[in-house]
Simulated assay, not measured.
Amino acid sequence: MTAQPQQGTSGPTSSPGTGGRRVLGRTGLEVSEVSLGAALLGQDRELGGTPSEQAVAAAVAMLTGPFVAVDSSNSYGQGRSELALGAGIAALGGFPDGKLLMTKADRDLATGRFDGDRVLRSFEESTRRLGVDVLPVYQLHDPYTVSFAEAMAPGGAVEALVRLRDEGAVGHLGIAAGTLSLVSAYVDTGVFDVVLTHNRFTLLNRSAADLVEDWAARGLGVINGAPFGGGLLARGAKPGASYAYEPADEPVLRFVARLEDLCREWEVPLPAAALQLSTRNPAIATTLVGTANPDRVAQTQALAAHPVPEGFWSAVDALGTPPVDFGTD
Rank of each mutant, 00 (worst) to 15 (best):
A169V: 02
T197K: 07
D142F: 12
G112E: 00
Y138S: 06
L120H: 14
R113K: 09
L140W: 02
E150G: 12
A153D: 04
R121F: 12
R163H: 14
A208H: 04
A176H: 01
Q139H: 13
H172A: 04
E213W: 09
G171K: 04
W215K: 08
H198V: 06
N205Y: 07
E213D: 05
R107K: 10
L196S: 05
S126W: 13
H141Y: 10
S181Q: 07
S184Q: 13
S207V: 09
K104T: 05
V137L: 13
T145K: 15
L182T: 07
R113A: 15
L196W: 11
L109E: 08
E213R: 13
Y144I: 09
E125L: 14
E125A: 15
D214A: 14
V162R: 07
I223L: 04
V195N: 04
D115T: 12
V132T: 14
R107V: 00
V158K: 05
L164S: 00
G190H: 14
R129N: 15
V158Y: 00
R128N: 13
A160S: 11
R200N: 05
L130A: 03
V158G: 03
A226P: 00
A110L: 05
T127R: 02
S147E: 01
S126I: 01
V194G: 07
L204W: 04
V212Y: 08
T111C: 03
V212G: 03
G168P: 07
R206Y: 12
G155L: 08
A149S: 14
V191F: 04
A160Y: 10
A110I: 11
G221H: 06
L182P: 06
G174H: 13
E159Y: 10
G178Q: 07
V170S: 01
V195I: 07
G131C: 14
E159M: 05
V194W: 02
A105H: 03
V183K: 00
A157M: 11
A226S: 06
